[in-house]
């Protein structure tokens, strides 16, 4: 009777553990998908482009890219190289093989956005975008 009782208990414990493992895998998958490098690259590139479309010369914009900073760090990408701008195209790269570009139509200069650093010269995860008047060719 005791033997049967203990086997029922073991079965129940295994059943619960399997359920927990299963749900954990599901939750990890969902969180990974939401903050994957590819998704964030697209999000940041479009966000920066839209911000620039709205912006006016002389504006200084501080953008929260802390999630992207963690991913870039994990993938061995220097955060200073995460955002590049070529003319009116923003290029965001957080993964080795990835990268996403998106253009803005506002005729302003968004040259050399740079990551913010603290007093110890460490990246804070924020990016600084400085908007200036377009140079007429």
């Amino acid at each position: 009777m005791n033997k049967r009782g203990s086997s029922v208990l073991v079965e129940n414990v295994i059943f619960i553990i399997l359920n927990i493992v299963f749900l954990s895998i599901l939750i990890v998958f969902l969180l990974n998908q939401a903050s994957s490098g590819r998704v964030l690259e697209e999000k940041y590139a479009k966000e920066i482009s839209l911000i620039t479309d709205y912006a006016k010369p002389e504006m200084r914009i501080k953008m929260d890219m802390r999630k992207g900073f963690k991913i870039a760090e994990k993938n061995g990408i220097d955060f200073a190289d995460a955002v590049r701008v070529d003319k009116n195209v923003v290029f965001v790269k957080l993964t080795e093989k990835g990268g996403y570009s998106y253009s803005f139509f506002n005729d302003v200069n968004l040259n050399e956005p740079y990551p913010e650093t603290n007093f110890e010269n460490e990246y804070t995860g924020f990016y600084i975008l400085i908007i200036s008047e377009a140079e007429n060719e």
Partner: peptide, 10 residues
């Protein structure tokens, strides 16, 4: 109007 319709070459 200060606009530029150039886009990425993709």
């Amino acid at each position: 109007c200060g606009l530029n319709f150039e886009t990425e070459n993709e």
